[in-house]
Amino acid sequence: MQNKRPRPGGRSERIRKAVAQAVLQLIRDHGIDFEIQEVSRLSGVGRATVFRRWPDRASLIGEALSEHVSGFSVTLKGEWPDDLLRMTRDFREFMRDPVELAMNRALLLTNNNAFRDQMSDYWKPIIELFQKPLRDAIDRGEIDPGVDVEIVIVAISEVLVMESLFENFGEVDISERLVSQLVRGCPPANRE
């Protein structure tokens, strides 16, 4: 008897991607208040399949968020100021994606705690990715261990979220100025 396992890139993966893309399109076009039937119609996946695998809107949004965040990656070179600048620039572009804009606007306007929790979980891998070059620099002794890595990352993400939500927020690209200021606030380790 053959062991049946989902194949990477097989039918299950095509269905997952079609549904995730449909949800992302609905979020982009209409926000988080959509019907599961709309997902079925837009994805071309039968309603029974959608309901069986994603029984509610929250699970559909979770799938879509996972798919969306998988599109953000950065190659780190091991030079923390350059890595931080590269990540900030790439994240700035990611924040301007229409789906990302719609999700962030929905987050600001919603009273839906489940969606807020999902968005928090969604952001975790991005925050961890941003923390890596700073934590590595601390481990190498390039930055003082007293630097609050979380606050540095919150400063970057908050400025970029605000900039993305308000089109005329500031300069054409504030990434370099922002990172330069934050680098100045991360003193080298005290080597006595």
Rank of each mutant, 00 (worst) to 15 (best):
D148E: 14
E176Y: 14
F51V: 08
E128N: 10
E38L: 01
I126R: 04
W80S: 12
M103L: 15
Q181H: 14
R92Y: 04
E128Y: 02
L134D: 00
S70Q: 15
K124G: 05
G62I: 01
A18F: 01
D139C: 01
D121T: 05
V152L: 11
L26I: 06
R184G: 11
K17I: 13
L65G: 12
M103I: 09
Q21M: 08
K4D: 14
F169M: 11
I32K: 00
D29T: 10
S120V: 03
E192N: 12
F91R: 10
D136V: 09
P188R: 13
W123V: 00
H30S: 11
G44D: 08
M119S: 09
D82H: 14
S180I: 12
I143A: 00
F166D: 09
T110G: 00
E142K: 08
F115I: 05
L160E: 07
R105D: 09
Q118H: 07
I27N: 03
I61S: 04
A137M: 00
P145T: 07
N168D: 15
F166L: 04
I61E: 01
G71P: 14
P125D: 10
A106M: 07
R116H: 09
R89C: 01
R105E: 03
K17N: 06
V45G: 06
T49W: 02
G71Y: 03
R5E: 14
D139M: 10
V74A: 14
G71K: 06
E171Y: 06
P6W: 08
S59N: 04
P188M: 06
Q25I: 02
V99L: 01
V179L: 11
E63L: 14
F91V: 04
D121M: 13
D148N: 15
P8M: 08
D173T: 04
P6N: 14
A137N: 10
V154Y: 08
L165K: 05
R28P: 03
I61N: 03
V159Y: 11
